[in-house]
Simulated assay, not measured.
Amino acid sequence: MTLLDDGTKATTPTTPAAKTPATLRAAQQTKTALWNDSADPTELRTAIEEYGAVGATCNPVIALTCIKQDPDTWIPRLRELAAEHPTAGESEIGWLAVEELSINAAKLLEPAFEASGGRNGRLSVQTDPRLHRDADALVAQAVHFSQLAKNVIVKIPATKVGIAAIEEAAYRGVSINATVSFTVPQVVAVGAAIERALDRRAADGLPEQEFGHVVTLMGGRLDDWLKATVKRDHVMVDPGVLEWAGVAALKHAHHVFQQRGYRSRVLSAAFRNHLQWSELVGGDLVVSPPFQWAKDINANDVPFRTDAIDQPVDPAVLEVLRTKVPDFTRAYDVDGMTIEEFDRFGATVRTLRQFLDASAQLDALVRDVLVPAV
């Protein structure tokens, strides 16, 4: 004990206890699961240990980012992979790096996988977007990826070809995460395909287990596309209205899955605003923000309701979206598009092209390691 000059006791200022992060509170209080939209090891550890994350993602875009952010680790490792596979080209070596990132991330998620019986603790690995026209190739790669680790879940695009591949891969025991998916018609079609696969497995006496299937709806990318159509068509809409489109689609998709008893869960991805987390809390679904989004949500202590998923979007907002933005109705209604129309939906075209470009950039990065400029 320290005494001051006047003989009184000195006191040590106390620091208020740190508040539990909002995402962790939501995970503890509801069925809503948090996944981390990155396989970066440092980010993923923080997301797991502090934010309550129980899943993660790896794909060419993420792998490219990880390599660029940590060249001291990855450039020498790419050279080692090239030496270990002397006949491999840049694309094969790039995908070996994706696999290595995925395996390492999957290990960090094993505790959550075991604790949930396989429902969570999943590491998503995305199939090569260059295979998007070949269902058999997508299935073969999905089966290969599923063998990298026991808790791998494989991303296949929610296109006409991709949905056929999803059903066959799920029948073969691959855990599925749909990607390139932005609309209620797409996620419902994927959910139905997974149900058919599970029923086929049961009919053929194949083992029943928790595959942890999820069906992504990239709400932010839907918002991006609708904003682009409004600008293209010179339509004047309150900008705030457009921030609710993806949220509305996600809420509606979740409720359709619940009503139909689908054994897969909707997954919210491609964040553009915190509503794509806070408005979904309480649902038996997955939210998968990029690490920085989760960090910012927690730093700002974004408020949420434990029954937010059941709070409807303002009908006036839905009415504006329906009357002024035709592609919203196509994206929101279960029968808004046929499966044949999925491939030409604007968000699908944009995102598939971005994923293809990321694959090309990853190839180019590896090429610079294998054949450095002189």
Rank of each mutant, 00 (worst) to 15 (best):
M1D: 15
L3N: 09
D5I: 13
D6Q: 06
G7R: 05
K9L: 15
K9Y: 13
A10G: 13
A26P: 02
T32I: 15
L34N: 04
W35K: 05
T42V: 11
I48K: 06
V54M: 12
T65P: 05
I67K: 04
K68S: 12
D70E: 14
T73W: 07
T73P: 07
I75R: 06
R77Q: 03
R79Y: 09
T87V: 14
G94C: 05
L96M: 12
A97Q: 06
V98D: 02
E100M: 14
S102D: 03
I103R: 14
G117V: 08
G118I: 09
D134Y: 11
A135V: 05
V143L: 03
F145N: 01
K150L: 08
K155G: 00
I156M: 01
I156L: 12
I156C: 09
A169P: 04
A170F: 06
Y171F: 14
Y171H: 12
V174E: 02
S181G: 04
F182Y: 06
A189T: 05
A197N: 04
L206M: 08
F211T: 01
L217P: 03
L222C: 01
K231H: 10
V235T: 06
A245F: 02
V247W: 01
A248E: 07
A249D: 05
L250G: 04
Q259E: 11
G261M: 03
S268K: 01
N273Y: 06
N273H: 07
P290C: 09
P290G: 12
F291G: 03
D301Q: 14
P303T: 11
I309P: 00
P315G: 04
A316T: 15
F328M: 07
V334M: 07
F345G: 00
G346R: 00
R350M: 14
S359D: 13
Q361P: 05
R367Y: 15
D368L: 13
